[in-house]
């Protein structure tokens, strides 16, 4: 077993945010149905409106991811930050529904928090200035919420440096084909900047696999150079790990990843906002969202204020059951607390 793989398995990206396709689908369905159950009693209209389906939610998240990429380009943020922010947004909406928390707000928050996570401490007021109708308070209101949503996994592994590594290796192996390697490098980078962010590949593949799949789209011959198909030449450290059916398994994975990437080639980026058909196709979804969103959580600023007030009043009161229920969302938390109170504080016996 390669130590590199073991080290990757220790990352939060693998432990918390990697799923098989069916798992991800289950999660999204569960999130969707939970949100429906929670929102239905809160909407005043007697016949509850039609809710978004999990598939429609995924479509909306994709749309808002593209919006986030555009916003990041507008703010001239570097590639890594843009990608981290996009992944934060996507991760958040795996376990939270679009109907529960407003994606237009979370988009700016993940942009701001993506900057922080990458060690780029932009001034909050400066960022808020760039967007119309946005106060810094609005960006901050969702910050802790976002952190919870992404389960405090702030380290996102991207395939960009991986591509640099692979290109370094290719240049060493093919010194006379400089032009070909550079061309593949530029094109693969272009793909990595867009396609993996709007598809689910970050959930299903590792960064090096994503990078190799992008190379596969551009120039399959180069991938063969990196993963040489011929049998190893006696213990050279570069070949041992491809022994047995390892190479086949890797190629199958790369192929699956390539197919996902090809669904959203970088050329589609402009399509999302420049062509009237796509804009029109999003409109009914957004209208539907307007009608079925959670009325209490749409305003993050008010939500944060209510939570703060609640925290203050709770300190004064020793027994604050009825008061807590006034601010929704804590009913389930109270139930949990009561359960712990009854038991041993360290939980039941093992």
């Amino acid at each position: 077993m390669a130590t590199e793989d073991e080290r990757y398995r220790q990352s939060t990206q693998f432990r918390l945010w990697s799923f098989s396709p069916s798992q991800l689908q289950d999660l999204r369905h569960k999130t969707n149905s939970l949100a429906q159950q929670q929102i239905a009693p809160r909407l005043s209209g007697s016949p509850s409106p039609e809710f978004l389906t999990a598939a429609e939610e995924a479509q909306l998240v994709k749309f808002f991811t593209v919006e986030l990429i555009r916003a990041a380009q507008f703010c001239e943020l570097p590639t890594e930050i843009r990608s981290t922010a996009a992944i934060f947004l996507r991760r958040f909406y795996v376990t939270n529904s679009v109907m529960t928390y407003p994606p237009t707000e979370l988009l700016k928050t993940s942009l701001f928090f993506g900057c922080k996570a990458e060690g780029f401490y932009i001034r909050l007021a400066k960022l808020a200035e760039k967007f119309t109708n946005t106060s810094s308070e609005q960006i901050l209101a969702g910050e802790y919420l976002l952190c919870q949503g992404i389960r405090f996994a702030f380290d996102v592994r991207h395939p960009f440096r991986a591509l640099e590594g692979a290109v370094l290796e290719l240049r060493r192996k093919l010194p006379e084909e400089e032009g070909r390697v550079s061309r593949a490098h530029a094109r693969a980078r272009e793909i990595l900047k867009f396609s993996p962010l709007v598809t689910d590949v970050y959930f299903h593949y590792t960064p090096s696999q994503i990078m190799m799949a992008a190379l596969l789209m551009v120039d399959a011959g180069l991938v063969d150079k990196l993963l040489p198909p011929e049998e190893g030449d006696g213990g050279a450290p570069g070949k041992m790990w491809l022994a047995g059916d390892m190479r086949n398994k890797i190629m199958v994975a790369l192929d699956g990843c390539r197919r996902m990437l090809e669904e959203e080639p970088p050329e589609r980026m402009t399509e999302y906002w420049a062509t009237p058909e796509t804009v029109k196709s999003m409109k009914p979804l957004r209208k539907k969202l307007q009608r079925c969103r959670d009325p209490d959580r749409a305003d993050l600023v008010a939500l944060q204020k209510a939570r703060r007030e609640q925290a203050v009043t709770k300190e004064k009161k020793t027994e604050g059951g009825g008061d807590d229920a006034a601010v929704f969302g804590d009913a389930d938390r109270d139930a949990k607390r009561r359960k712990v109170d009854g038991d041993d504080i360290f939980g039941g016996p093992l």
Binding site: A2, S20, R161, A162, S208
Partner: peptide, 15 residues
Amino acid sequence: RAMFDGFAGLGVFIA
């Protein structure tokens, strides 16, 4: 770092 990123996790099959 670049080399580690390029080749780490190639043998990790999430599905």
